[in-house]
């Protein structure tokens, strides 16, 4: 091999390597920056107290509580639908059937729609259409209870946004259940439904869990879909009904960093809030990644 060519080869390998490590370096750098900026402010009191003095002091408890409530509503609405869709795609239709293809295309499309469009949809459909019409029937005349931004509509919007994640991860888990187990169950006289309930789903439980965790992590971090479907700038109380508005960690970071009256003074709070959100999503993702690697190893073995 000519020396020039060898140098070119070494250079090429070096560039690819450098690109990979540049990404890793950036991830570490972002982590360190956020930890460095927020560590001193972060404390148990910060987590468990409310903002004070026009959000320039105090903690972020309402934002944490709001985030959890939102994610909870999202999960109980979205995960069952996602799981059932995955069951349908894996157990009831052939992979190549037109129905399966259409639904898969819909799921992929849903995954590609920008999150802000989900926000618009939440406003246009859930609030303006469903909510307003519910008010016409259920609420005293002239009162708006359902037809305004609230937890339930934000939760539904978020459930829709995270639906593809759940479907795809659960599907992966269901396909990893050995075919022989299904055949054994059917041969023993169990019906298809019984086989799914007693054999397929119990053995896919880690997958369902992983899908849920990934959805939760995504749901905890997304801000765009809830901007006008329920999040509030500041609330002195924790929401108690599904028709209440709520505070959320990501949105809290956004308003504190861009619309706060005193950005300099609240810098510590901003970093600490970002740190809380980052750690929350990091831990969730980390667990999900580990479970999935185990799952894949098992499937290959």
């Amino acid at each position: 091999m000519k020396p020039g060519r060898r140098i070119f080869g070494t250079g090429f390998v070096f560039i690819t390597q450098a690109s990979a490590f540049l990404i890793i370096g950036l991830v570490i750098f972002i982590f360190l920056t956020i930890i460095h900026g927020g560590w001193n402010t972060l404390s148990l009191e910060f987590i468990f107290s409310s903002p004070k003095n026009g959000m320039t002091e105090g903690g972020i408890f309402p934002a944490i509580a709001g985030t959890f409530m939102l994610v909870f509503i999202m999960t109980i609405l979205g995960v069952p639908v996602g799981t059932i869709t995955a069951v349908f795609l894996c157990e009831y239709v052939k992979k190549s059937s037109p129905v399966a293809k259409i639904i898969r295309f819909a799921v992929n499309t849903l995954a590609g729609i920008p999150s802000i469009v989900f926000g618009l949809f939440g406003l246009g459909f859930f609030i303006q259409f469903v909510g307003r019409n519910m008010d016409k029937v259920l609420s005293p005349p002239g009162e708006l209870i359902w037809g305004q931004p609230s937890l339930i509509w934000a939760g539904l919007t978020m459930a829709l946004l995270t639906l593809p994640t759940v479907i795809i991860v659960v599907e992966e888990a269901i396909t990893s259940v050995p075919r022989e187990w299904r055949e054994a169950s059917l041969a023993l006289g169990a019906t298809k439904w019984e086989t799914i309930i007693r054999v397929v789903l119990p053995n896919s439980i880690t997958g369902i869990l992983t899908g849920t965790i990934l959805a939760v992590s995504r749901g905890a971090g997304e801000v765009a879909p809830i901007l006008f479907t329920g999040v509030a700038y500041f609330l002195p109380y924790i929401p108690t009904r599904v028709t209440d508005q709520f505070m959320q960690l990501g949105y809290h970071i956004y308003v504190m960093a861009t619309q706060s009256t005193n950005v300099e003074k609240t810098l510590g709070i901003q970093y600490a809030t970002t740190l809380v959100l980052l750690l929350l999503t990091f831990i969730l993702n980390f667990i999900a990644i580990i479970i999935r690697y185990q799952l894949r190893k098992k499937r290959i073995a």
């Binding site: 990404i23 950036l26 991830v27 972002i30 956020i34 992590s217 995504r218 905890a220 971090g221 997304e222 801000v223 765009a224 990501g250 949105y251 970071i253 956004y254 970002t274 959100l277 980052l278 999503t281 990091f282 969730l284 993702n285």
Partner: peptide, 8 residues
Amino acid sequence: LAGFPSVV
């Protein structure tokens, strides 16, 4: 990195 919230 894929799991980093965009707001972060």
